[in-house]
């Protein structure tokens, strides 16, 4: 089968990681890599076989990719993705989707109109533990749900400093866009979309212009309520650590990237889990990948995107439509403040 012609726009930390994963994919031909930083494109020109560009429109015209990965600061997502969709190009974009719910809706409609594959990089949804968590919730093993706590902590801003687009909320910086979006997306897609915000604190700890922590009481479409607690200025964590705790009539689930812990009051028919605590490590839950860079989930989401472009997968995980609900919740939290 023909290789998928792929191009990348934005070669920062995420963009380079995507480029590496794509570069190792046997069914992908990289036809262009674009960034305005000469530092990065010079590096790639010198050491890699990938054609480099500093203007994405020029790249699209010359390289004619079938699919593009967009990993520029979030502020530029709308303009670039709109252009790509108008050119009938499949799009994978980094999270969060856009900075406005209305713009996200517009892009979702445009992708649907043109029947294009669309995906957003909420990689947690390709982690074995969270996949199993979602499956268990869907299967109703906890029966009626009572409450959930969704948390994420990490050591990004641990002293006063501010230099990049990440410290500017208008460009998509701050803990809400960067960290909390992951947690919101996980809640939306495993428990149901967030519909109301009953309370929200956006707290500055070290940053001057953006929040470093998000604490919120939320309500889902189903009426289920829960707590969000997210802090990117927490030095007690070595890296970003996300955990979801779900309480129900028949027990509790605690899931993070490494482990799924399930407490059942009573065993459930057709499930292997027994009464009491059941511990499953990611090693036993995660499907292997063909190329590993920084976690199976990053490779798995890319493999899924390429398979969807080739028509082998349904393009049902992390769609623009789903990410639009996440952007809606982010907007509600901002408006609350």
């Amino acid at each position: 089968m023909n290789k998928v012609k792929l191009a990348l726009i934005g070669l920062g930390k995420m963009g380079l990681s995507h480029l590496s994963i794509a570069g190792a994919h046997p069914e992908v031909q990289i036809v262009g890599a674009c960034d305005t930083s000469v530092m990065v494109t010079d590096f790639l020109k010198k050491f890699t076989p990938f054609p480099c560009f500093d203007n994405y429109k020029k790249m699209i015209a010359e390289a004619k990719p079938a699919a593009v990965i967009v990993a520029v600061p979030t502020k530029y997502h709308f303009e670039i993705i709109e252009y790509l969709l108008q050119q009938k190009i499949h799009v994978f974009c980094e999270k969060p989707f856009t900075l406005s719910h209305a713009e996200s809706q517009q892009l979702t409609a445009l992708a649907a109109e043109n029947n294009l594959v669309n995906q957003v990089g909420y990689h947690n949804r390709f982690l074995g533990t969270f996949i199993e968590m979602s499956r268990l919730i869907k299967a109703g093993v906890l029966q009626e749900l009572h409450h959930f706590t969704a948390e994420s902590y990490g050591p990004v801003v641990t002293k006063p400093h501010q230099d990049t687009w990440r410290s500017n909320a208008n460009e998509g910086g701050g803990c809400l866009y960067d960290y909390a979006s992951h947690v919101i997306d996980l809640v939306n897609n495993s428990l149901g979309n967030i519909e109301n915000i009953s309370g929200c604190l956006l707290k500055k700890i070290y940053s001057k212009n953006v929040e470093d922590a998000v604490y919120s009481l939320v309500q889902l479409e189903s009426g289920l309520t829960g707590v969000l607690s997210v802090n990117w200025s927490d030095s007690t964590y070595r890296k970003m650590t996300t955990q979801i705790t779900i309480e129900g009539a028949n027990g509790k689930i605690i899931a993070d990237a490494t482990e799924l812990k399930l407490f059942l009051k009573a065993p459930v028919k057709n499930e292997k889990y027994t009464a009491g605590w059941n511990i499953q490590s990611v090693g036993a839950l995660q499907s292997p990948v063909d190329f590993y860079l920084r976690g199976e989930e990053y490779s798995a989401q890319f493999d899924y995107f390429i398979a969807a472009v080739k028509g082998l997968e349904p393009n049902a995980i992390n769609t623009f439509a789903q990410a639009t609900y996440t952007d809606k919740a982010i907007q509600l939290m901002k408006q609350f403040n």
Binding site: G12, G154, H161, D163, R166
Partner: peptide
């Protein structure tokens, strides 16, 4: 790696 990755998030690539 996390030392550098966190620094990139905070300071940008060049920073």
């Amino acid at each position: 790696a996390h030392k550098y990755a966190n620094a990139v998030t905070e300071l940008g690539m060049l920073g």
